[in-house]
Design a binder for these strands. Structure first.
Lengths: 195, 195
DNA sequence: TTGACATATTCAACAAGTTGAGTATAGACT
DNA sequence: AGTCTATACTCAACTTGTTGAATATGTCAA
């Protein structure tokens, strides 16, 4: 039911077509939700069958017709119900952590490579968020709606920073291990790699 | 294919039954992967069909028979291939962020409630991880395998701490808004809620 | 002795997410 | 003239994840 509620939330803001919703997902919401257009269209059909939405067909010149969806009273009510119900955290499924967990069974270089690759991805994503922050959220001139939007971007920023910091922890650990194992290492830095 | 590789990883360590794997998922891996036993059994069957695993039936006294799965050469090879292939970050789907995004459309108290509920959950999870840390990872006496395991716990600890910090950011923002809106507020603390 | 709990696995149905193709119009670029 | 992109939607097949029930044995405690 989760995607349905994300869609309801967008339609709370303004009536939209499936295509519009898809774009808003990509632009605004991609930091914490991803949905393919196929998924969105399918969900919209289901939600209309449930009576949460209605649509009217809008003829456009130069573009294909579109179905403009808007909330029904039942939809608005369902949205309110959802809003006050507790939200569960996303189940996390992280390949990289599985790899690190098994780190003792592979060459240290393999662990390092895996972590480095992911570190790079998070660094890029962080940069992207930083750009968005600079471009779309002027420190002293945000509307109320923008302020909330900014709070969600803050989550994205934190998330990426936290990943980077953890990757660095792992890399530091690997460095210390390597130093301790190599004959030319300083002898007294091997213990207590993390605390 | 992701669950399959998590299972391969566990079997790299030691041959196990579906039930054993389920328990290790719950105990060790639950911080970053969740799988129901049904899912695991289904996946094991599929993996055996692909030739990654083989099993032998072990008769036990006082307990039902079990199927002890172990890696084949092909399975080990596939695991190696996966290990060196880049890992994508999990797609995140966070209801709570959708709620905060729409914060301007509901009463501030509703946002606060939603955030407080989640904050509580993360605080509890953090405490749980802290206990695990204290009980299972003695600072100076970890095996190599434990050290890697500890690194994954570190990810969990960080993750929960980061959530708490963000929740507090949102709550602070809401407090400042409330103070700015109420007549008895200090007049000059309203601007620049975050930076 | 009855019921809860741990061990150990299977089947069925469904919901959610992914992949890929297909249909259409229209403007812009080459 | 042909291709690319943007708009706008649909259908089908598949994989993955969730929920609930069913089966079977043995131990431990109320």
């Amino acid at each position: 039911m989760a995607l349905a509620h994300a869609i309801l939330t967008i339609l709370t803001d303004t009536p939209s077509s499936g295509y519009d919703i898809g774009k808003r997902f990509e632009e605004q919401v991609s930091c914490f939700w991803k949905a393919s257009s196929q998924q969105i269209y399918r969900e919209l059909t289901k939600m209309e069958q449930q009576g949460w939405l209605q649509h009217e067909v809008i003829a456009q010149t130069g573009k294909p017709d579109k179905k403009l969806y808007s909330l029904t009273a039942a939809g608005r009510q369902e949205w309110q119900r959802w809003y006050t119900a507790p939200t569960e955290p996303t189940p996390i499924r992280e390949d990289l952590l599985v790899k690190v967990l098994a780190g003792a069974h592979v060459a240290p270089e393999q662990v390092r490579q895996a972590v480095l690759l992911r570190r790079h991805r998070h660094a890029q994503q962080l940069q992207l968020y930083r750009r968005t922050e600079a471009e779309e959220f002027p420190p002293n001139a945000m509307t109320r709606s923008q302020q909330f939007s900014y709070l969600t971007l803050r989550r994205g920023l934190r998330y990426e920073q936290d990943w980077l910091a953890w990757c660095d922890e792992v890399l530091t650990f690997l460095d210390e291990q390597a130093a301790a194992d190599s004959p030319s290492a300083l002898p007294d830095t091997s213990a207590l790699p993390l605390q």
